[in-house]
Amino acid sequence: MTVATTNGTAKRTAAANSRKVRFRIKRCDGPNKLVRWETFELTIAKGENVISCLQKIAANPVTTEGKRSTPVVWDCSCLEEVCGSCTMVINGQARQSCSALIDVIAPDDGDTVTLEPMSKFPVIRDLWVDRSRMFDALKRVKAWVPIDGTYDLGAGPRERPEEQAVRYALSECMTCGCCLEACPQFELAEDESEWDKSFIGAQALSQARLFNLHETGAQLKGDRLETLMGPDGVSECGNAQNCVKVCPKHIPLTESIAAVGRSTTIHAISKWFSGK
């Protein structure tokens, strides 16, 4: 509400803290178009984030050279770091732009913030990339509980609070792609036909574990493990463990990878001995 942001306190602190910050933005008009860098300078008040700065640039897209450009294209939705949309590479690291507070990432007058699109996904335009591959990966690992249908058939399985806590942590994954951007084993695959040729990444592995942990979800455990024993599966992980460090939701991704590793070990041995 306006009343909330134009209150006396906010105004005072804003005036005391206002300063200039430069935004160096990697831009590209579309697939197979040339990449260019543009710099914009903004006056920053206390409490701003990368989103509010991109909004200001959109309203007045004039570069530091005084050249009129176009509003920067980027992906965003909830602005609360829960939808995963606004992920980009900020000062070299993948993160959400909504929670990138300027006071933290560029604390001093004259600082520069560098914005780039994620490098592991095809660029649509400017900072907007196509992360369809992540959703496709969820299909490949059958990341769902195979219920009979959406009719009322009584309650689901009971669950101990500790089990719920494990599943809840995994279920907070917002498909943002930070884990994949930071993974040295995950590579850009422009074409859909290439998606299953290289490492599927921590996101899908962790989701496979999530559904293997559910009593009904475990019906598809074998299918999931078979997929993850393929050439793009769990054994492509190189244990660099960047994923867990950049995950904004602090999901124990490396534990998920190890857990899937254990499941595949058991699955493979059991299959060798029992044939299924």
């Binding site: 769902w144 509980v145 219920i147 959406t150 009719y151 009322d152 058939l153 009584g154 309650a155 689901g156 009971r158 669950e159 101990r160 609070p161 089990e163 719920q164 599943r167 809840y168 279920s171 559904f211 559910h214 009904t216 979800g217």
Partner: peptide, 21 residues
Amino acid sequence: PRIIDLLDRMGVPFNRTAEGY
């Protein structure tokens, strides 16, 4: 209540009591 049950079957990690409800 029926919708809660359905969501439960879908695997929503509802917070649980010590007894698992």
